[in-house]
């Protein structure tokens, strides 16, 4: 059966605390910490972007997959912060990992769902027998306008997955996608920051689509919430996934390992994929995992993974996701953050 043969994550070392952002805009940090369960978020360095983080995550995935990169037939990168408007991220990543030139590259974009979109297509190509291995990456240096509620959560990170049929560590037993046209969050051409519809991003958007996909995939697979050792939902903040998990009948312990947002922030296309990497780092053979992404505009991709005996061989072959989250981090002030995120208008 087709599934994941290697996975890897990457997050930059810079962090800014919610208190530091709240201090600048005169808001109540506690309301973000309590209300949205946010503590701090990752910030990319001046020399980091979607391409650099994708390369590092892909290299970690290759270390675990232990395959010749020349056998990778597709490199897909999902992001809403591709460094170029016109020029693919996938070719740079493919070149850096040694997968070029006999490879198919594509950049995906679907708000925060672009990463699982790439995973869905990569898996389909493997199931169709079109190639031996396919690489899918979800990565973002998320944008949020200064003083907007999004600024407290928009973060940077990447997760990469290599799909194949040999030495699979997590079989994909079911997939399901649920989409409608819902204008809850968008960014028009040439606009620097996205806009969102405030509370409208909740019930008719995030909750409707996550629940729609989660209920349907559990119905077609005959699974109940208690059948899953772990569940990972898209994480725009710490509160939404906790609430939707409760509404669907999951216990907080099932969400705990994959819920990175409180100390990482929302890595947009990297959000639920990075949560999945944290789960794979500790998953045991035989366990089943439910993952449901969400992208504004709007839609959810749901996957059920079954962990195989092979997982224990690869977990220690590359840095764990929590290594990137907890070790080596350095806190910055808002001035440094503004510089790193290029929020300061410079002279000619």
């Amino acid at each position: 059966m087709a599934g994941i043969v290697g996975y890897g994550a990457y997050a930059p070392r810079y962090r800014i605390k919610v208190e530091e952002i709240a201090k600048v805009w005169g808001t109540d940090a506690e309301s973000y910490k309590r209300g949205l369960r946010l503590e701090e978020k990752s910030v990319p360095g001046l020399d980091q972007d979607v391409i650099t983080m994708s390369v590092e995550a892909a290299r970690n995935a290759l270390k675990r997959a232990r395959i010749d990169p020349k056998k990778i037939g597709a490199v897909y990168i999902g992001s809403e912060s591709h460094p170029y408007a016109v020029k693919p991220s996938g070719t740079v990543v493919g070149e850096a990992i040694g997968a070029t030139p006999d490879v198919h590259c594509a950049d995906f974009e679907f708000a925060c769902k672009a990463g699982t979109e790439g995973m869905f297509v990569a898996l389909g190509l493997i199931e169709a027998g079109k190639m031996e291995y396919a690489l899918a990456i979800g990565a973002d240096t998320s944008q949020g306008a200064p003083s907007d509620a999004l600024e407290y959560s928009t973060a940077a990170g990447a997760a990469a997955f290599i799909f194949g049929t040999k030495d699979v560590i997590a079989e994909v037993t079911h997939t399901f996608s649920y989409m409608t046209d819902t204008p809850d969050f968008w960014r028009r051409e040439y606009m620097h920051y996205p806009r969102h519809a405030g509370r409208f991003t909740g019930a008719p958007a995030y909750f409707k689509h996550i629940k729609g996909a989660a209920k349907a995939i559990m119905e077609i697979s005959g699974k109940k919430p208690e059948d899953f050792a772990h569940v990972v939902f898209h994480q725009p903040n710490g509160k939404f996934p906790t609430t939707v998990g409760k509404q669907l009948g999951f216990k907080p312990q099932q969400l705990e390992t994959g819920l990175l947002c409180p100390r990482l922030g929302n890595t947009y296309s990297g959000s639920s994929p990075m949560g999945l990497t944290a789960v794979l780092d500790v998953a045991k053979p035989g366990e089943e995992i439910l993952m449901v992404s969400y992208g504004s505009g709007a839609g959810s991709d749901a996957f059920i993974y079954r962990i195989t005996e092979k997982i224990t061989e690869v977990q220690g072959l590359a840095p764990k996701t929590t290594d990137y989250l907890d070790r080596n981090k350095v806190y910055i002030d808002y001035g440094t953050y503004a510089k790193l995120r290029k929020k300061i208008r410079m002279g000619e």
Binding site: G45, D49, I51, T52, V55, E56, Y84
Partner: peptide, 20 residues
């Protein structure tokens, strides 16, 4: 050794990547 952005050829030019 990590893959990083080395420099940008201005706002409209290419982005040069490499090792650091």
């Amino acid at each position: 050794i990590e893959f990083r952005k080395i420099k940008e050829e201005g706002e409209a030019g290419i982005i040069c990547y490499g090792y650091k």
